[in-house]
């Protein structure tokens, strides 16, 4: 299974990263899709590429998969140039395309057996099929599978060869909640076994759940990078939802900081976030007979950070 040890191990100090991107530029005619992007990813790490449509995610990933011509800069996967050294690289990488990639009349069982035959020490196809929840659909042609089942099969095909580097594009798009949980577990197992996973996704909750590090790109450039919980440079705050009409100046006076009401009934109180301050706020509201419908303390969620950074650049 994916959790069994891969031959590579997490990066030791001084070891080369699994993925190296240096000043990458990708152009399509006059359009610059990727504009001087640099980042690394280590063995055993899940790095997620985030960005709005057209940000350059797919161009970046496809450069690493050897599909795109690099206009300037360099990309290396396991030390090799994927555009010129795919023969050496192919046994060690697993690729999940955004769509397609399977013969339409081929069944999941046939596809997995075929792909397993390409590798010297593959995962057992039937077990992988069962794990992906595709056992019942194992004899159904790919073209008759649901969108979610097609995604799960593509994921299984990407990992059947026990890759050292896995490129996963939207692995849970259209996948049901149970299978989504299994996919997340599989991705974490891959990383635990030393595989570097480059995950492209629009599902920010998924990224928050599985990624060790997030790279947000927009218009071909990096706009933020870091662990999902630490990527934001926004100040900490307490956000809460009540019925509208709170006395904001009084609240600000009582707790310091500023109080903003983003939409009626949704308030943000800036300043230090401590258990005592949260408790005091709840007491202050209770004394005024205000029912708190929702309360959240701390920094921004990844979704909020993403929206703020991308919107800031687009305005």
């Amino acid at each position: 299974m994916a959790g069994e040890p891969a031959t590579s191990t997490p990066r030791a100090s001084g070891a080369a990263p699994a993925i190296e991107v240096h000043d990458l530029v990708v152009r399509y005619g006059a359009l610059t899709a990727v504009d001087g992007l640099s980042f690394n990813a280590d063995h055993g790490e899940v790095l997620s590429l985030l960005g709005p449509n057209g940000a350059g995610k797919t161009s970046t990933v496809e450069s690493l998969e050897g599909y795109r011509k690099v206009a300037a800069g360099s990309v290396r996967v396991l030390g090799a140039d994927p555009a010129t050294d795919m023969r050496r690289l192919a046994p060690d990488i697993g690729v999940m395309l955004q769509q397609g990639g399977v013969y339409p009349s081929m069944t999941p069982a046939e596809a997995l057996r075929l792909f397993a035959s390409y590798y010297s020490s593959p995962n057992e196809p039937t077990a992988l099929l069962e794990r992906m929840g595709l056992g019942a659909a194992s004899g159904t042609p790919w073209k008759r599978l649901s969108g979610g089942e097609q995604r799960l099969l593509s994921l299984a095909l990407a990992v059947v060869g026990r890759p050292k580097v896995a490129f996963l594009d939207e692995p849970t798009a259209g996948v049901d909640p149970d299978a989504r949980t299994e996919v997340r577990a599989l991705v974490r197992e891959l990383a635990s076994s030393g595989t570097c996973v480059l995950l492209a996704s629009h599902d920010l909750e998924e990224v928050e759940a599985v990624a060790d590090r997030v790279l947000i790109i927009d218009r071909g450039r990096k706009v933020a990078e870091g662990a999902p919980g630490q990527i934001s440079d926004a100040p900490e705050e307490i956000r809460f939802t009540t019925s509208p009409g709170i006395d904001k100046p009084a609240l600000a006076l009582a707790f310091g900081g500023t109080v903003a009401e983003s939409t009626p009934g949704r308030y943000r109180l800036t300043g230090e976030v401590t258990p005592a301050r949260v408790a005091d706020l709840a007491t202050w509201l209770a004394e005024r007979d205000v029912l708190v419908l929702e309360l959240r303390a701390g920094g921004e969620s990844l979704r909020e950070t993403f929206a703020r950074l991308v919107n800031r650049r687009q305005t």
Partner: peptide, 11 residues
């Protein structure tokens, strides 16, 4: 269907 593309990155 992307089959050729996909197979290009297999051994």
């Amino acid at each position: 269907y992307g089959v050729l593309k996909r197979l290009g990155t297999t051994p």
